[in-house]
């Protein structure tokens, strides 16, 4: 994926989130699950953070969990969707992750839960996050990765090729784990760490999966998506293919979510770093015991 490629229609991203805001609590199990795991990672950091930003806060569900860690002082909640952020508590602001409205060096912690996979310009966004951090500030994020919804992607693609003789993206693409690591480094984060895990969620049927995605505001927002509705026959065929190819014996279906965790520190001289090239004082040969 090239940096300049516009993949997502950001107006659609916002519209999906606006629409989902009122009822997201019914569908937010994935957010809650990943929130718990992200908070665990924060608890592993032996530091307190006096000013924090929740970037892509949805309806502000992370606030009580962050408070409970006792590590975070004041928290600013920020979301692209005014309808989402208006449901959050405390200081809040509506802003686009691709154009952050924060003064440099404002935060000790920027945390982001399942929002950054909708950003077109992830390198630019990471750069802006880094600059919004104080020196030695922490960025901790979770976003959906490339394996996410692979079953749905596969089933709908097959149905579309069979029924309509062509293919348009039905499921949004997600970033690769390796890409994410490179991007953190290129954005100037020190001590970057990436890891990923697969969560498999079992749904009663594929239709329920699709309604949950809609409920979370996570439906396809690629620019190349077809603006017309999927033909009913194609959709039904896709759902049948999903059941046949991936379904369990009891009729339920699994859905894969790959969660990519990113963390990095804004640079500070106290952090460990490699020595300058040619600055070695001891010969490698001596260390190896042969001279």
């Amino acid at each position: 994926m090239t940096d300049s490629m516009m993949v997502f229609d950001r107006r659609a991203v916002r519209a999906h989130r606006d629409r989902a805001a009122a009822t997201i609590a019914r569908y937010d199990f994935l957010l809650q699950e990943v929130a718990g795991r992200l908070i665990e990672r924060l608890e592993d950091v032996k530091r307190d953070f006096s000013v924090a930003l929740d970037l892509g806060c949805h309806t502000g569900g992370l606030r009580p969990a962050l408070r409970a860690t006792g590590k975070v002082g004041s928290l600013v909640s920020c979301d692209f969707s005014p309808a989402m952020v208006s449901r959050a508590a405390g200081p809040r602001v509506a802003a686009d992750e691709e154009a952050l409205p924060f003064k440099g060096g404002s935060f000790d912690l920027v945390i982001s839960l399942l929002s950054l996979h909708w950003v077109n310009d992830l390198p630019g966004t990471l750069l802006q996050i880094r600059s919004a951090l104080k020196p030695d500030g922490l960025f901790l994020g979770a976003m959906l990765g490339g394996q996410t919804l692979k079953e749905l992607r596969h089933a709908l693609a097959e149905a579309e090729i069979a029924g309509e003789g062509g293919l348009s993206p039905r499921v949004s693409p997600f970033a690769d784990v390796r890409d994410a690591g490179d991007l953190l480094q290129r954005a100037g984060f020190a001590l970057p760490v990436i890891d990923a895990e697969i969560l498999t969620v079992v749904y009663p049927d594929p239709l329920k999966l699709m309604s949950d995605l809609r409920g979370m505001g996570e439906t396809n927002a690629t620019i190349e998506r077809r603006k017309s509705f999927t033909r009913r026959a194609t959709l039904l065929d896709g759902l049948a293919r999903y059941r046949n190819a991936f379904g369990n014996e009891d009729g339920t279906v699994p859905a894969t979510f790959q969660v990519v965790y990113l963390s990095g520190w804004s640079p500070h001289e106290s952090q460990p770093k490699p020595l300058r090239r040619g600055s070695a004082r001891n010969r490698l040969a001596d260390a190896l015991g042969n001279s």
């Binding site: 692209f80 005014p82 208006s86 602001v93 509506a94 802003a95 154009a99 409205p101």
Partner: peptide, 12 residues
């Protein structure tokens, strides 16, 4: 600023 929430979106 709507209901105390700055809407920092150029579109808006």
């Amino acid at each position: 600023i709507r209901d105390g929430i700055p809407i920092m979106l150029p579109d808006e």
